[in-house]
């Protein structure tokens, strides 16, 4: 919100700011996990770290999701499915690449014949989270970074 006018209870804002605020405060990720990073992701959703307080609530359908958290090793077999899920999400959509595997292939970079060397080869990524696996704090950091990014964007370009 850009301005509060005081006693009258009136708020002034631009449509951009309003929609950005709404988007950033309700980032609903698609509920799926690929490997061990998914365990950390589930830990982040659970009560100790509580992603709920950021408005992050996992959705079971790509049609209702805004964010895709790619948490784990993307195999070639899974790559086709990940791409399809991404295409099924409604715009605006964002991608968080969580962990080394999904950033660049991780420990499978040299001998992993079955691993895509970075999920950014199939879908565009907004935030990369380093770690193997990243701590929940790092994932929360990524969500805050993504919120910052959304606040800076403008529909009018």
């Amino acid at each position: 919100m850009s301005e509060k006018s005081g006693e009258s209870g009136l708020m002034l804002t631009t449509l951009d700011d309003l929609s950005n605020w709404a988007q950033a405060s309700s980032l609903w990720p698609l509920s799926f996990g690929l490997a061990c990073c998914a365990i950390e992701m589930m830990g982040s959703y659970a009560s100790s770290f509580d992603l709920d307080r950021f408005g992050v609530i996992p959705r079971a359908s790509p049609r209702q999701a805004d964010v895709m958290i790619v948490s784990g090793t993307v195999t070639f077999k899974m790559a086709d499915r990940v791409k399809r899920l991404y295409e099924q999400m409604a715009e605006p959509r964002f991608v968080i690449s969580m962990g080394s595997c999904s950033n660049c292939g991780g420990p499978y970079w040299e001998h992993g014949y079955h691993v895509v060397k970075g999920v950014d080869r199939i879908i565009p990524v907004d935030v990369y989270v380093p770690g193997c696996p990243p701590r929940p704090e790092a994932l929360i950091g990524a969500i805050i970074k993504l919120q910052e990014k959304i606040r800076k964007t403008s529909e009018n370009g």
């Binding site: 070639f76 790559a79 292939g105 040299e110 014949y113 060397k117």
Partner: peptide, 13 residues
């Protein structure tokens, strides 16, 4: 390993 799978390079580069 084959060079590409569904258009994606298998080797890291």
């Amino acid at each position: 390993a084959q060079e590409r799978y569904h258009g994606l390079k298998i080797k890291y580069e």
